Computed example of a mutant assay.
Amino acid sequence: MNPATPALHQAAALLLGYPGPDWPARHTLVRDCLTELATPAAAPLLRFCAAVDGTPVLDLASAYVRTFDRSRRRTLHLTYYTDGDTRRRGSTLAALKAHYRAHGWAPPENELPDHLPLLLEFAARCPDPGSALLRDHRAALELLRMALTDHGSPYADILRAVCDTLPGPSPADRAQALALARGGPPTETVGLAPFSANPSLKPSAVRGTGR
């Protein structure tokens, strides 16, 4: 593992968090730390920092909601990409929470354990098991990266940075990423179907309660 990878995961976790009142200070802290880190792997994260620099917090918060909370293709809840709205997703979420606790980390109770910033925070604190979890969710990460790119969102650079920390090349296209996701298909009627139709969700269906 690149020695800078935990720091990159921590930076990505902070940048993917909801841009509340603390955002200006958070943005500055992450940008300065990435600049000091001085690794080429930080370039996509620094591009994101530059792209949103000076954006009013309320405007960025509104864009965040439109980007992540109103499209199944762009949700930050990673198990949705492989489990959909199935009972299987519940067991997957429970296993994730147990995995965190087994390594001495208790995520906040007001967010689902598959929320990408939480996985990245865990990977920063517990690099080996955390990186393994990110590898397990590579299909979801790649699908989210492609969806953000298609959407023209600066957040795509954050996903690019995260995917670049994983071994091997990224899928060449969406078909390959979907094939990777189907390696563990849901057994019920709702699974990967949302990604072919791209319907919108109410924000409450995918947002956490801690913002």
Rank of each mutant, 00 (worst) to 15 (best):
T35I: 13
E36C: 11
E36S: 14
E36A: 15
L37I: 04
L37E: 02
L37Y: 03
A38V: 04
A38P: 09
T39K: 07
T39S: 12
T39I: 10
P40F: 08
P40T: 10
A41N: 11
A41G: 13
A42N: 08
A42R: 04
A42T: 01
A42F: 03
A42W: 01
A43W: 04
A43D: 07
A43H: 06
A43C: 07
A43I: 04
P44I: 12
P44L: 11
P44C: 11
L45T: 05
L46A: 03
L46F: 05
L46R: 06
L46V: 01
L46H: 04
R47K: 08
R47F: 03
R47W: 03
R47N: 05
F48R: 00
F48Y: 12
F48P: 05
F48G: 00
C49N: 01
A51R: 02
A51S: 02
V52H: 01
V52Q: 01
V52P: 00
D53Q: 08
D53P: 00
T55C: 13
T55K: 09
T55F: 03
P56W: 04
P56N: 10
P56T: 05
P56Y: 04
V57G: 02
L58C: 07
L58K: 15
L58Y: 07
D59H: 11
L60E: 09
L60Y: 07
L60C: 14
A61E: 09
S62F: 10
S62C: 14
S62L: 12
A63R: 11
Y64Q: 14
Y64S: 14
V65Y: 03
V65P: 02
V65S: 12
R66Y: 06
R66K: 15
T67V: 07
T67W: 01
D69G: 07
D69L: 08
D69A: 13
D69K: 10
D69I: 07
D69N: 08
R70I: 15
R70S: 10
S71F: 11
S71G: 14
R72V: 12
R72A: 15
R72T: 13
R72P: 14
L76C: 01
L76V: 03
H77V: 11
H77L: 08
H77P: 08
H77F: 09
L78C: 11
L78F: 07
T79H: 06
Y80W: 05
Y80A: 03
Y80N: 02
Y80T: 03
Y81R: 13
T82L: 03
D83F: 04
G84M: 06
G84C: 06
G84L: 07
G84R: 01
D85K: 08
D85P: 09
D85V: 13
T86R: 06
T86N: 05
T86L: 01
T86S: 15
R87E: 05
R88A: 08
R88E: 10
R89H: 03
R89N: 02
G90M: 02
G90N: 08
S91W: 12
S91F: 10
T92V: 15
T92E: 13
L93G: 03
L96T: 01
L96G: 03
K97H: 09
K97F: 00
A98F: 00
A98N: 09
H99D: 09
H99G: 06
Y100N: 10
Y100C: 09
Y100P: 03
R101M: 12
R101N: 12
A102S: 11
H103P: 04
H103R: 13
H103I: 14
